[in-house]
Write a protein that binds this DNA or RNA. Structure first.
Length: 292
DNA sequence: CACCAGGATGTTT
DNA sequence: AAACATCATGGT
């Protein structure tokens, strides 16, 4: 059991960080959150400025939640218009998690054209099918499966995971990475644009998934993933948004408007997306939809 | 029971 | 380059 005292001048909100939809495998319990990171089960809870956890070293927790990033400075750097200002004030303390690269990549391949509850369900099935079991007092949990475990799996077993049309994409990308152990380190050392081109070569990885992986796993904070929610928010809440049409236009606007930490702006806008749904809840259907 | 979902891919304009 | 159809499945 470890405890970290959070600095009073550095915002952190564990609940927002784990519930905003950037990670899919943490579960909220009665007394905190439980999740598997790498090969270890982590239990963690926050009480004010105190962070208490077990299953990992303080260094791992600080790195995973990027607690050494100057979030206060980042937020003031992206606070450039009324919409993001409102999102920041409602979601202050949300941090971008530094996810394991393969888990992040595989998760977002499975996340295309689906809603968050469905994504969580699929990824849970994937881990139960191909991950390694960890025996814990709370029961049996599973690690995220390696590329090889998915690449060389039987077709009937991957069908159990209900991936639908994404299954061949995931399997092919898993095979490529299983044959290329140096892939992650090679991509990690590349600047944003070159790393993005590498990701786009993989099956099932388009611009949006690539930007998510760059932001959530490779620490490229200038990445600005554009999904249907970001499109709606930009189109309905930004004067310049009405003219935007293609992915590159939304993406370019976001990166130019918010600067080198555009990824944080994207995540705050996404987390605050209920602002355009009538505010009745997380995943409500929007009251009005932009025409395409 | 309609409609939509943290889109990507292949095809057609 | 931009618009379009299609994809398998589950949530709401």
């Amino acid at each position: 059991m470890h405890t970290i005292a959070l600095r009073p001048d550095q915002p952190f909100d564990l609940d927002l960080t784990l519930s905003c939809g950037q990670v899919f495998r943490w579960e909220r319990g009665k007394r905190g959150w439980t999740g598997v990171v790498g090969d270890s089960l982590i239990c963690i809870r926050q009480e004010g400025r105190s962070l208490t956890f077990q299953g990992a070293d303080p260094g791992c927790i600080i790195s995973y939640f990027q607690l050494d990033e100057d979030l206060a400075g980042i937020l003031s750097s992206i606070d450039r218009d009324p919409q993001i200002h409102a999102a920041i004030s409602r979601c202050r303390g949300l941090r971008i998690v530094r996810q394991p690269a393969w888990e992040c990549l595989a998760s977002y391949i499975c996340a295309t054209y689906a809603n968050i509850p469905g994504i969580k369900r699929r990824i849970s099935l994937l881990c139960r099918c191909f991950g390694d079991p960890l025996l814990t007092p709370a029961g049996e949990v599973f690690t995220f499966p390696s590329p090889g475990a998915i690449a060389f799996s039987e077709p009937c077993r991957i069908a159990e995971c209900r991936l639908g049309y994404r299954a061949p994409y995931l399997k092919e990308t898993a095979r490529v990475l299983a044959d290329d152990p140096g892939w992650e380190e090679r991509v990690r050392d590349l600047p944003y644009e070159k790393a993005r081109r590498e990701l786009l070569r993989l099956k099932g990885v388009g611009k949006k998934v690539a930007d998510c992986v760059l932001l959530f796993a490779f620490g490229k904070h200038e990445a600005f993933p554009v999904d249907v929610w970001i499109q709606r928010i930009l189109k309905t809440r930004y004067p310049e948004g009405v003219t935007l049409r293609t992915y590159d236009q939304f993406n370019s606007f976001g990166r130019t408007h918010f600067g080198s930490y555009a990824g944080y702006a994207q995540e705050y806008l996404f987390c605050d997306r209920a602002a355009i749904t009538g505010g009745r809840g997380e995943d409500q259907v929007p009251v009005s939809q932009p025409d395409r």
